[in-house]
Design a protein around this nucleic acid. Structure first.
Lengths: 193, 193
DNA sequence: CGGTCTCTTGACGGAGTTCAAAGCTAGTGG
DNA sequence: CCACTAGCTTTGAACTCCGTCAAGAGACCG
């Protein structure tokens, strides 16, 4: 297992020493996946934080009508959006699946607890990550009501050009909160310009 | 200044000793407010975390068209939703204002830094708060696209009955992502049942 | 009481959905 | 390496939820 990307991602926020890296290497689980493969299914025990070590992942919510709503994409070097393994909740309401061939690194719940108890810098790491994530999510929420679908799509293109190329449009539509049909119409309109 | 509610709110997640309480008492700033009074304005330096010690607060975003979108209400014993003072960002995009007579407690940015440096349990405290907040915000986001305005209103009534009674409807509409007019029509329809 | 802000009501318009069908692409097996 | 198929994307027509605008009714505060 190559955890280089994992360490460098965490290293952006805290300095890891060798002991911590050794510990992480001893608990991380490599989980290869293929496109469409479900890694964690909703209502299952929430046992892992999921890191995209190679390829693309998405975390999504399935509503009463069976429609999938994308919470977050995860490209190489990002955490997936399902955070329930760090809560008291026994199960997660979200599913996480592969959008390409790739490899996830799974950080088991027990290892999360161990990290937070024994390496206090991980409290800081997750505090900063969740803080950033929450601020981002607040703005995304407001954008969902104050900007039109077309504006949100343009904003998405700017922010995530890589994902745009590698992810089916229907999931981008889902991320933006619109139907695939309407995204197609937006794209047609934009291409005429 | 009576910081009893403040300590008991934090005490739900971490145990405070006297030294920490003394420090907090020495840095917290009492800030009385009246209904409609702005406590922090958008684009101002983000200098405080804001705790509602008495009364109601709301944190909101003002879009290009001047429309206010409520990010979060804060009743007695809650933090307001503006978290920018904990980031590198110099200013905040959100405003926070009073919805009643009341008193806010302001925790200055320097004190936040001091707490995190010298009392590591505050790393844990904020980690847990942001984690919960982020999970809540993720679900709220999905609900915004998968549920109708009427369903969201019913869900709001269940979750926040106290706020419902004390806050003008136009702000509840804003929180739900709809216009005051449409909320009024929803309420009329529901009352006929 | 008078004025201002909030809530209600109704007519109309538009952004986005739904449904159905056809074209396109990519992964799979022979 | 080609052919098949399943899923993805596009297109169009009808529809719906919610917004906009405007006007009136109520509520609160000095």
């Amino acid at each position: 297992m190559n955890s280089k990307k994992f360490f460098s991602s965490i290293g952006q926020y805290i300095q890891l020493d060798q002991k911590e890296k050794d510990y992480l290497n001893s608990v991380l689980i490599a989980r290869p996946f293929r496109s469409g493969e479900i890694i964690v299914e909703r209502n299952e025990p929430s046992r892992f934080l999921i890191f995209a070590n190679a390829g693309y992942l998405m975390t999504y919510y399935t509503d009463r009508d069976g429609v999938e709503h994308v919470i977050q994409f995860a490209a190489e070097g990002w955490w997936a959006g399902d955070l329930y393994s760090l809560s008291e909740s026994a199960t997660t309401p979200f599913s996480t699946k592969g959008l390409s061939h790739g490899e996830a690194l799974l950080l088991p719940r027990m290892a999360q607890d161990h990290l937070l108890e024994n390496f206090p810098k991980f409290e800081r790491y997750f505090r900063v990550m969740f803080h950033k994530g929450l601020m981002r999510q607040q703005l995304r929420y407001v954008e969902g009501f104050s900007a039109s679908a077309e504006e949100r799509y343009l904003s998405f293109i700017k922010s995530y050009p890589a994902i745009l190329k590698d992810v089916p449009q229907k999931y981008i539509a889902s991320y933006l909160g619109i139907t695939p049909e309407f995204l197609s119409k937006i794209r047609k309109k934009l291409s005429r310009k």
